[in-house]
Design a protein around this nucleic acid. Structure first.
Lengths: 238, 238
DNA sequence: GCAAAAGTGTTAGCTTTACACCCATGA
DNA sequence: TCATGGGTGTAAAGCTAACACTTTTGC
């Protein structure tokens, strides 16, 4: 079963989400950074950050490296989204793209070099992108929204400790709808995913809220194909 | 941004599920076909059916073609599972595998050429496979079990029309646990996914059960990245 | 009639949702 | 003391799970 030359280029791209106020509503919402293409095809169009896979790096390493090189971002969460492999998705060359999605905190997002060639856009209001990237972003947004409800990805938008209101605001920003504060509190408290700390936040003109942290002792669900193994397939950097 | 030679081989493999009686319990359970390797690496080990991606075929087409060539199977359902890209998953060569999972009916499964080099195994009791294929099968099995509960993939194991008992037996085989017939009936009836036909099945020594078919007019959920478009990313062949 | 599976009814317990209300702090 | 968000209480509605019971067929 000898293999002849395939001549299929293998690329990785990443949809990176951060939360920022939406320009229209003013409410916190998902934004993504895009990179302006400086060569054909789709020259001068906005596209997802990405690049080629090197022969001696894993797909995930390739995604993280390209992310860092093009946007200077190091995400706190990185997960594979889908492999896109239609024959005509790139003119001329045959390119298969393994796409990842990532989450960064607002403070990390500000460290990305923004400028002529890198700019952040509200994820629900994008220009026409290069290749099939509009479809990809829509799918990533759908995954983010479904997964925030049953997993603990919201932590990637938060610091080590946080108040329940901060956690709820992350959920509201992702889902783009208000949540009942009382019921939200009971849901997360009964889920056992959080542990209260001894600290509260003082300084507000109101009762000081308690700080929580994530409970690291409980096992995760839907952690990808290697999630049942000792080493997860999703990269979580605290 | 000129790209030098990557020398990364792009392969597809597929985890194909069919339902058959389990050799120990006698109850219906998921089985998968495996292919015996006839060359290094992992010569003589069992492995998932698969092969290389041709330059001018999509990933999904490549999966379907390799399936047909190695096992003579044409699945009724085919969906991408995950792209596996660890550097050392194949010795010597660098191989990235885009893995699909597929469902076939029992009658279709019997048409696969079984023999020295192709054999069916109970999915929960496999020998040590080539490469990382044990991990892949476990993940596919997890996806099958979670997805059967919220989507309509069970249809891929059934004919055009079927009784509610037949549908329930598919769920029981996948989940490997008995379900309450009365509650199962109410769940699927209230979901609106099924439409009763005018026909019943006669011949049993009991009240003749009604035949149902799937309601094609309702929109699907979680149909992959292209699921929101007119053409789905999952292949459903009736 | 009787066995067997189809199909309906009923109830206890749990979860969800909506919203009223009290609490603790800074100004 | 008042405004503000933190946090608790509560009840209606809906859903789930378990199981009793009725229906319709073949023999």
């Amino acid at each position: 079963m000898a293999r002849e030359r395939q001549d299929i280029a293998l690329a990785v791209s990443t949809v990176i989400f951060a939360l920022r106020p939406h320009p229209e509503t003013g409410l916190s919402a998902p934004w993504i950074p895009l990179v302006r293409r400086i060569a054909a095809p789709f020259e001068s169009r906005w596209a997802l950050p990405g690049g080629w896979v090197a022969p001696r790096e894993s797909l995930e390493d390739a995604a993280a490296r390209n992310l860092l090189e093009t946007t200077a971002l190091e995400p706190t969460y990185l997960e594979q989204l889908y492999a896109f492999g239609a024959v005509d998705r790139s003119p001329e060359e045959r390119v298969v793209s393994v796409v990842y999605w990532a989450l960064v905190r607002a403070d990390q997002a500000q460290q990305s070099r923004e400028g002529e060639n890198v700019r952040w856009f509200p994820a629900d209001d994008l220009p026409q992108l290069a290749f099939d990237h509009n479809v990809i972003v829509d799918y990533a947004l759908w995954r983010l929204r479904t997964k925030v409800e049953y997993s603990r990805i919201a932590r990637a938008f938060l610091g080590e400790t946080f108040t329940l209101t901060e956690l709820r605001e992350v959920h509201e920003a992702v889902l783009q709808k208000p949540l009942d504060a009382a019921n939200f509190r009971r849901q997360v408290e009964s889920s056992g995913t959080l542990v209260p700390t001894d600290s509260v936040v003082t300084g507000g003109r109101h009762r000081p809220p308690r700080l929580y942290r994530y409970n690291e002792t409980i096992e995760l669900v839907d952690n990808g194909p290697l999630g049942h193994e000792k080493t997860g397939s999703t990269r979580v950097v605290s």
